[in-house]
Amino acid sequence: MSTVDDVHALAAAMPHVTALEGPKGNTIYQVGGKSFVFFRTPQPDAADPGTGEKYPDVIMFWVESEEDKDALVRDPTTPFFTTPRFDGHLSVLLRAAHLHRIPREELAEIVQDAWLSRASPRRREKWLNG
């Protein structure tokens, strides 16, 4: 099953990737200056419904389309979610605490799809045909 280290390794292994450190120490993976995997800092839109405590471990993955987002979020077998703050934003959220529910091969596809959704057409084509 997947771990946070797997997310980092998979994102960093994609071509033309830059890993940035956000102002609060969170890691942001970009391709061509566009984020595709983003380790969020605790935010009020993602919090424990019982305590209100902000989740400290939310990872954002970009997706290609609303259909892709909807498929991940609505599938009861996956731990992906979204919040009203992300209505219309082509991304899904996942708590690192739930990564163990995703096989590494599936996580690899999620990271690759995130990269593909943000890479330039030329880079996408080269990677897909390479």
Results as ranks from 00 to 15, higher is better:
residue 1 M to V: 11
residue 1 M to W: 12
residue 3 T to S: 14
residue 4 V to Y: 07
residue 5 D to I: 02
residue 8 H to T: 13
residue 8 H to A: 10
residue 10 L to I: 00
residue 10 L to H: 02
residue 10 L to K: 01
residue 11 A to C: 05
residue 11 A to F: 02
residue 11 A to Q: 07
residue 12 A to T: 06
residue 16 H to F: 10
residue 18 T to I: 10
residue 20 L to R: 07
residue 20 L to P: 00
residue 21 E to R: 08
residue 21 E to V: 14
residue 23 P to Y: 07
residue 25 G to F: 07
residue 26 N to Y: 13
residue 28 I to F: 04
residue 32 G to M: 00
residue 33 G to I: 07
residue 33 G to D: 08
residue 34 K to N: 06
residue 34 K to V: 01
residue 35 S to L: 06
residue 36 F to N: 00
residue 37 V to Y: 03
residue 40 R to K: 13
residue 40 R to L: 13
residue 41 T to M: 15
residue 42 P to T: 15
residue 45 D to L: 12
residue 46 A to H: 12
residue 46 A to Q: 05
residue 47 A to Y: 08
residue 47 A to F: 10
residue 47 A to N: 11
residue 47 A to Q: 15
residue 48 D to W: 05
residue 48 D to L: 08
residue 48 D to F: 06
residue 48 D to C: 10
residue 49 P to S: 08
residue 50 G to Q: 13
residue 50 G to H: 03
residue 51 T to I: 10
residue 53 E to F: 03
residue 54 K to V: 06
residue 56 P to R: 15
residue 56 P to M: 03
residue 57 D to F: 04
residue 57 D to N: 09
residue 58 V to R: 06
residue 59 I to T: 09
residue 59 I to N: 06
residue 60 M to W: 08
residue 62 W to H: 12
residue 64 E to T: 09
residue 65 S to V: 05
residue 67 E to T: 14
residue 72 L to K: 01
residue 73 V to K: 05
residue 74 R to C: 11
residue 75 D to W: 08
residue 77 T to F: 05
residue 77 T to Q: 09
residue 80 F to I: 01
residue 80 F to L: 04
residue 80 F to V: 04
residue 83 T to C: 03
residue 83 T to R: 12
residue 84 P to S: 11
residue 84 P to I: 12
residue 84 P to R: 11
residue 85 R to D: 14
residue 89 H to G: 05
residue 89 H to W: 15
residue 90 L to W: 00
residue 91 S to G: 12
residue 92 V to S: 05
residue 92 V to H: 06
residue 93 L to D: 09
residue 93 L to Q: 12
residue 94 L to C: 09
residue 96 A to C: 02
residue 97 A to E: 01
residue 97 A to V: 05
residue 97 A to H: 08
residue 97 A to F: 05
residue 99 L to K: 01
residue 100 H to L: 07
residue 102 I to D: 03
residue 103 P to A: 11
residue 109 E to Q: 14
residue 112 Q to H: 15
residue 112 Q to A: 10
residue 115 W to E: 01
residue 116 L to E: 13
residue 118 R to W: 04
residue 118 R to V: 00
residue 119 A to I: 02
residue 119 A to H: 08
residue 121 P to S: 13
residue 122 R to P: 01
residue 123 R to W: 15
residue 126 K to D: 14
residue 127 W to T: 06
residue 128 L to E: 10
residue 130 G to E: 10
